[in-house]
């Protein structure tokens, strides 16, 4: 805790109820970390459901996982990792006060984010065309049966896999959309030159959020796409 009793001259970014700029920044950073803790539990509820159903219906999960497009999944993971790099470099640029570089990196991040969402859209559309969306029109006949499953796969249990797939990727995509919104906001202010080496907390905590959403995908990728990719037969 930093409590400097001396009233230092400060810029307009210091809000009245904080004693110092450090205190304000530490509060914002802790706030974001706590928010990310709630986000872990938010996704945690779905991971819990995933764990249990994967134990129960492994064959259906394996078959569902095989039907996902590994190429697009891998590319999307790479896209997100690139976006995380541009965010990390962006925070650095803000700390060093390089406004132009910061603006470019923020634009790149948004582009990567939109690319991710676009690819996700392509994948979802593919699922729609193959009738893999849970509901009345769901059709599991085209799915490859894993070689070791002697009883075949239960189409209704298969719907559980796809329900989780859409719930998890859907809520992740929603977080991406919010992230793109946040970064558009940051871009606007970076453009105006609001962030300086002394004041760049919004970039820093916005970056934390973006990295978190990246980490969620880092887990979703193997859990949804790579359950069972062993060669058949």
């Amino acid at each position: 805790m930093s409590d400097s009793p001396i009233a230092v001259e400060h810029g307009p970014e210091l809000r009245h109820h904080f004693a110092s700029v450090e205190q304000q920044r530490d509060a914002a950073s802790l706030g974001m970390w706590l928010f990310l803790a709630t986000e872990i539990m938010f996704f945690g509820g779905m991971f819990c459901a995933y764990l249990i159903y994967r134990m129960w219906y492994f064959n259906e999960f394996a078959a569902g996982s095989r039907s996902l497009n590994l190429k697009w999944g891998t590319i999307n993971t790479i896209v997100l990792i690139c976006s995380s790099l541009t965010v990390a470099l962006g925070v650095r640029a803000a700390q060093m006060g390089k406004r132009k570089l910061l603006v470019i990196l923020l634009i790149l991040t948004i582009v990567f984010g939109l690319a991710f969402l676009g690819i996700k859209g392509i994948e979802w559309h593919e699922k729609y065309e193959h009738h893999h969306i849970p509901g009345a029109s769901f059709d599991a006949t085209a799915l490859e049966k894993p070689p070791y499953s002697n009883g075949g796969i239960d189409p209704s249990h298969e719907q559980i896999y796809f329900s989780l797939y859409f719930a998890m990727t859907g809520l992740h995509a929603l977080h991406m959309i919010i992230g793109v919104g946040i970064f558009a906001f940051l871009l606007f202010h970076a453009w105006k030159g609001r962030y300086t080496p002394q004041y760049n907390t919004p970039i820093e905590i916005g970056g934390l959020y973006w990295h978190f959403v990246d980490i969620v995908w880092i887990y979703l990728f193997p859990l949804l796409y790579l359950i069972d990719r062993k060669p058949l037969g």
């Binding site: 802790l30 970390w33 803790a37 872990i40 539990m41 945690g44 509820g45 764990l51």
Partner: peptide, 13 residues
């Protein structure tokens, strides 16, 4: 914060 949130997730699981 990070460790305790992961701990809580593991509690749930």
């Amino acid at each position: 914060v990070i460790i305790s949130s992961i701990f809580w997730l593991l509690l749930l699981l």
